[in-house]
């Protein structure tokens, strides 16, 4: 069986800087996989390569065995590969409900239609309302996204991604900016996704990583330092020195 998501020798250079170097990952379907590494390690860049925001300098991306290296972003989403952003990337002037309904309309291929008003799309509005309720966002549904506090906007960020019904979900520091009490809840919703949904998440809070990840990839200076179970990663001296050590000091 081919992996849900695989990269081969993936690299990205920004001028003289190698942000991602020769990364070969293999993520099986249904995985709960964490990507960790110090700031500037290239984690976000890797997600940008996987989703097609950036073009790789070298290497390939495969989705369920199909090479998607040159596929535009929106078509990767149509194939079930969705991401969230480290820094909220939302629709400030749309209401929370409108935003999620829009994502659902896009998923269903209805977003280019113009004969019926959005307000008559009952099924999509219903689905969006339910999704918002799982994040306790229902009372904010009619507010403009820009009016929400950052932490609540963070939830919209994730709700938007889930509205696309991803097969593979890439989360770039989903809990950043959320109070730690709530971050457990947020990752709980993600962990509770159907077992066949593959999740790759970047997270700095080691408590959350060890709690939710089955496997961990450690990225340092654009390269994969190691990959293994949380126990293996915790035991690894190199990781301790390079990553956990720095974390403890800084």
């Amino acid at each position: 069986m081919s992996a849900a998501l695989r990269t081969a020798g993936l690299s990205k250079r920004f001028g003289g800087l190698s942000a991602v170097s020769d990364v070969s990952l293999e993520i099986p379907q249904g995985a709960r996989h964490a990507l960790i590494g110090p700031n500037g390690a290239g984690k976000t860049t890797l997600i940008n390569l996987l989703t097609g925001v950036l073009e790789p300098s070298a290497g390939d991306v495969f989705l369920g065995g199909e090479r998607i290296t040159a596929l535009p972003q929106h078509l990767r989403v149509k194939k079930g590969l969705t991401r969230t952003f480290q820094i909220n990337t939302l629709f400030p002037g749309l209401t929370v409900l409108e935003s999620v309904v829009l994502a659902i309309l896009e998923r269903k291929g209805l977003a280019a239609r113009w004969m019926r008003p959005v307000s008559s799309h009952r099924a999509e509005i219903g689905e969006a309302t339910e999704l918002l309720a799982t994040f306790k966002l229902d009372r904010d549904a009619q507010r403009r996204t820009a009016e929400l506090a950052y932490g609540r906007q963070r939830l919209v960020e994730i709700a938007l991604a889930l509205a696309t019904r991803p097969k593979i979900l890439l989360l770039d520091e989903p809990a950043a900016g959320i109070p730690s009490s709530e971050s457990v809840e947020v990752l709980g919703v993600i962990a509770a996704l159907p077992a066949d949904v593959t999740v790759l998440f970047i997270e700095h809070d080691m408590g959350l990583v060890f709690r939710f990840a089955e496997r961990i990839t450690v990225l340092v200076a654009g390269r994969v330092l190691m990959e293994g179970t949380p126990e293996e990663v915790a035991r690894n001296d190199e990781v301790k020195a390079v990553y956990l050590g720095r974390e403890a000091h800084g």
Binding site: P72, H74, T82, P92, A161, A163
Partner: peptide, 17 residues
């Protein structure tokens, strides 16, 4: 609505397909 989405954030639109 999709046009307003593009106006509000052209970077997010491709990420919702």
């Amino acid at each position: 609505l999709s046009l307003r989405g593009i106006r509000e954030n052209p970077a997010r639109m491709p990420a919702i397909g």
